[in-house]
Design a protein around this nucleic acid. Sequence first.
DNA 1: TAAAATTAGTTGCATTATGCAACCTAAAAT
DNA 2: ATTTTAGGTTGCATAATGCAACTAATTTTA
Lengths: 146, 146
Amino acid sequence: MPQKFRCDCPFTSALDVLGDKWMLVIVKQLLVDGMETFKDLRASDEAIASNILSAKLKLLEEAGIISKTKKPNNKKTNLYLLTDKGLALTPILVELAIWSDGHLRDIHPTIVNGEPMALLRNDKAAFATALEKRYKEKLARTKYIP
Amino acid sequence: MPQKFRCDCPFTSALDVLGDKWMLVIVKQLLVDGMETFKDLRASDEAIASNILSAKLKLLEEAGIISKTKKPNNKKTNLYLLTDKGLALTPILVELAIWSDGHLRDIHPTIVNGEPMALLRNDKAAFATALEKRYKEKLARTKYIP
DNA sequence: TAAAATTAGTTGCATTATGCAACCTAAAAT
DNA sequence: ATTTTAGGTTGCATAATGCAACTAATTTTA
């Protein structure tokens, strides 16, 4: 079924696609945590159930945010990779992390706070660019079978 | 009940608070659309049900993103206003709109596309600053009864 | 000042989304 | 040839969201 949109507002429309508990988390796992298979995503700290993961991967693919392909020389393992449309979500993720860093530590003190967070605070545009660059290099290394 | 967090990831933690269909839409209505009362929010294009609105306003207040106060000289009408923590969500909203503008028009051609979108495209930081400045001026004009 | 309208909700019930545990199939590894 | 692994599906439980009707207090109107 096609995506439903509540109205013509650009803010709201993004949330019609992305506004749930899992969509952006999965994008983050692919972009930031280096995950690329169903198994990777299942085994994450976030602990998504396999039926939910399956459903969300379908939605992400329908939305054009990820593409599903096979690992080279392997008929079993699927690769889930971000498209350009999915990579373009990087600045949103970066802003989410900045807000967490600045405004969530009081109620969630164990949020990670190492070197990468210092980089993020220091120059968010550079942080986003670095994430995108790293991911594009990974794509270039991956023998991509569309 | 206190907020539950899935893990210590700053990306995921923001989504534990904000990742649903309504939280950021309500923040947008307050920040961008100039809404401030229960009635305003109900009457929006997004058409939220009153029980859901009621529940989400409670959550937003518990999270410290909005504060509830009374309209001056009026015992009936409640004002919902963004706190600093809520105003700090502006860059997230701006990035969501940029992504919609650039990547959602193919599947949702009626997304608004006027003068404000041109400003957004041209300088997103200035756009965010202008939104925050306008809101702070509005707060200054509002006789605030905390 | 009494009646009408407005604001800010609540309540009960239906539908949809998410979560859990068990299960299945095909491919890969042993 | 057998076992293990990857990528799911299925059935059922719980939680989130949606709809329509209703209420209570305040404010406006007559």
